[in-house]
Amino acid sequence: MTSHPAQETYDDGTRLHGEYKVPGGKLVVVDLEVAGGKFTNVSVSGDFFLEPDEALLDINAALTGLDAATGAPDLAAAITARLPKDAVLFGFSAEAVAVAVRRALSRATGWADHQWDVIPPSVLPTRVNVALDEVLTEEVGAGRRNPTLRFWDWEEPSVVIGSFQSVRNEVDPEGVARHGVTVVRRISGGGAMFMEAGNCITYSLYLPQTLVDGISFADSYAFLDSWVMAALEKLGISAFYVPLNDIATDQGKIGGAAQKRLANGGMLHHVTMSYDIDADKMVEVLRIGKEKLSDKGTRSAKKRVDPLRRQTGLSRAAIITAMQDVFAERYGATVSELTAEELEEAGKRVGSKFGTDEWLNRVP
Rank of each mutant, 00 (worst) to 15 (best):
230 A>W: 02
304 R>E: 12
155 E>R: 10
155 E>W: 06
80 T>A: 14
250 D>R: 09
303 K>C: 07
141 G>R: 02
328 A>D: 08
280 D>V: 12
65 G>F: 10
108 A>P: 10
75 L>K: 02
84 P>T: 10
6 A>Y: 01
204 S>A: 15
241 Y>V: 14
281 K>P: 05
6 A>M: 08
83 L>M: 07
336 S>E: 05
271 V>R: 00
257 A>H: 05
123 V>D: 10
54 E>P: 07
82 R>W: 06
111 W>D: 06
154 W>I: 09
202 T>H: 01
16 L>A: 08
328 A>M: 12
335 V>W: 01
302 K>V: 12
48 F>W: 03
190 G>H: 03
266 G>R: 06
236 G>N: 04
298 T>K: 01
66 L>S: 13
95 E>N: 11
303 K>L: 13
152 W>H: 11
262 L>S: 12
53 D>C: 06
338 L>W: 02
115 Q>T: 12
349 R>H: 13
285 V>R: 03
115 Q>V: 14
243 P>V: 10
15 R>H: 00
260 K>I: 08
264 N>I: 10
248 A>N: 11
155 E>F: 06
301 A>Q: 08
334 T>K: 03
21 K>C: 10
234 K>P: 07
290 K>G: 15
14 T>H: 00
156 E>M: 07
21 K>H: 12
158 S>T: 05
63 L>P: 09
254 I>C: 06
277 I>M: 10
68 A>C: 14
111 W>P: 07
123 V>L: 05
293 L>G: 09
173 P>K: 04
288 I>V: 15
204 S>F: 00
361 N>Q: 11
159 V>W: 03
126 T>M: 14
20 Y>C: 08
36 G>N: 05
106 S>Q: 15
235 L>E: 12
176 V>C: 07
